[in-house]
């Protein structure tokens, strides 16, 4: 049980951004650009719902490219490989198969909380939204959203200049066979989970709810709006331009992709 009141969310004028589908590398750049905007006080705290324009493998900031990704398999399936600014594990994304969102907030929202507690805190509203759809999900520390039937999603955070980025990808549906052709999932990683097959670890929301993906997203937005307040918003042209510059100088470069070879 969280001891932190949800009323602290209410101290902010939360903004909602729902993207048109954009390419994976632009999502990486927007996360950094918007984190900087919130840190600088130029944008109020924001919830961004992602739409993907291409399949992707998104690896964590500290993951080894060659250890995590089968580059040949990714190329064969037309999967774009990108590195994000947060730690955590590799994700296999296909448009329409995942629900992804980012929260950009002042760190004062989670002041006094341990890092581990702040993960669960940031996704409390999502667990409530899922519960309202009949999915009993909970937080498995450090950063997993899980259910009796299997893992649903994972979160990752990074902090910068007084702002925190918390983003989450949940599986709506999954092509496990393809996933295993683009990701290298080692046995050691699964050793303390007691599960032999990586594919079995995930139980996607489509199977658990029987609902269209958009219906789940709508319920999530509705839940956030009811609990915390939420104003419809959009990317500013200068935010988009800042992200484009970051693609050029950072996220689109081989140097960044291979930051950990």
């Amino acid at each position: 049980m969280s001891t932190y009141p949800s009323s602290s969310w209410r101290a902010y004028d939360w903004q909602l951004i729902r993207d048109a589908p954009i390419i994976p590398v632009m999502h990486m750049a927007l996360d950094e650009a918007l984190l900087e905007e919130v840190a600088a006080g130029r944008r109020p705290p924001t919830l961004r719902i992602w739409e993907w324009a291409a399949s992707a493998v998104v690896i964590g900031r500290f993951q080894s490219l060659r250890n995590e990704v089968d580059l040949e398999g990714a190329q064969r399936h037309g999967v774009q490989v990108v590195r994000r600014i947060t730690g955590g594990g590799a994700m296999f994304i296909e448009p329409g198969n995942t629900i992804t969102y980012s929260i950009y907030a002042p760190v004062e929202l989670v002041a006094g909380m341990s890092m581990v507690d702040s993960y669960a805190f940031f996704d409390r509203w999502v667990l409530d939204a899922l519960a309202s759809l009949g999915v009993e999900a909970w937080y498995q520390p450090i950063n997993d959203i899980t259910s009796a039937a299997g893992k649903i999603g994972g979160a990752a955070q990074t902090r910068r200049n007084g702002a925190v980025l918390h983003h989450v990808t949940m599986a709506y549906d999954i092509d496990s066979a393809k996933m295993l052709e683009v990701l290298r999932i080692g046995r050691e990683k699964l050793s303390d989970k007691g599960i032999a097959s990586a594919a079995k670890r995930v139980d996607p929301l489509r199977r658990q709810t029987g609902l269209p993906r958009d219906a789940i997203i709508e319920r999530m937005i509705e839940t956030f709006r009811t609990q915390n307040g939420l104003t419809d918003s959009a990317l500013k042209p200068e935010e988009w331009q800042a992200a484009e510059r970051l693609v050029e100088t950072k996220f689109g470069t081989e140097e960044w992709l291979r930051a950990v070879p």
Binding site: G60, F62, Q63, G87, G89, N143, V260
Partner: peptide, 12 residues
Amino acid sequence: VVLSGDFFLEPA
């Protein structure tokens, strides 16, 4: 020596 994994670090 190259260290990697799916952990979290601040600063990077």
